[in-house]
Design a protein around this nucleic acid. Structure first.
Lengths: 134, 134
DNA sequence: CCGTATCCTCTGAGATACTG
DNA sequence: CAGTATCTCAGAGGATACGG
């Protein structure tokens, strides 16, 4: 059978993952943990101006998804370490492809935006209104 | 110099692209246009339950980013066709990698969630509280 | 140190109605 | 057909304070 998920249907798995990627904080945490284990407050300093609430909340959902591992050590005061799971690492690598796209093409995107914000004219020369006949 | 963008800084290019991907509607539109050109209302039917407002708005920003091309034909009533640009196609292909990840790993994610929602126990056998000493 | 609880704000998406 | 213009409302997320 192997029915492929239909991304046009809300609630489809693909869509749920995509929403995760859309979660800017989640992505930043994945990236931050790529270089290794970090403690709660270390993460907090690394990801400038993330609120305590969002860090805690996002970490919890990443842990729930099996992407991040949380380890508590009974020191005083308590120590909590976060790291990527194997699954988390595969996702962060995939996300990395996206950041490569961004770095490679951001220039084109910005150029397109400038064109659009002026008189929206595509790369060719014609100045004013793009309007074809048929 | 070639300074790499710092994703931890809001407003960095990478982050802007990531936010785009997080925009569920934008991704759905890119995917919908992969198979070819579509008219406004065709897109609307294809992407079930997207509102007119969001479709129009998202298309506009995708056009601004140079990812989608908009062509107007002077028929009566007017005809408007949307298609991917070359740039848009490269992005939609990259996004496709992400959907592949989703399809490949959604099972693991859901399994992790079930474990978490019960007594949060990692894959090993120990039942109750994960807590290490040091 | 590592969080949770509470309150409060403000954006952003949906519904609806109207136009070229 | 292909949009724009308003309105409303929920809920994401920041600030703050407190607890284990």
């Amino acid at each position: 059978m192997l029915k492929r998920p239909d991304p046009f249907q809300a609630l489809c798995p693909t869509r749920r993952v995509l929403d995760r990627i859309g979660d800017s904080w989640a992505v930043l945490i994945l990236v931050a943990l790529e270089d290794g284990t970090l403690r709660f407050n270390a993460l907090r300093r690394r990801i400038e101006n993330i609120s305590q609430k969002m860090l805690s909340q996002t970490l919890k959902s990443l842990e729930r998804d099996g992407l991040v591992r949380r380890e508590v050590f009974a020191t005083v005061p308590v120590t909590v370490e976060y790291s990527l799971t194997g699954l988390g690492r595969t996702l962060s690598q995939t996300v990395h492809q996206l950041t490569l796209w961004a770095e490679a093409h951001i220039g084109e995107v910005e150029a397109a935006q400038r064109r659009y914000d002026q008189g929206l004219a595509p790369p060719d020369g014609r100045s004013p209104a793009p309007l074809s006949l048929r």
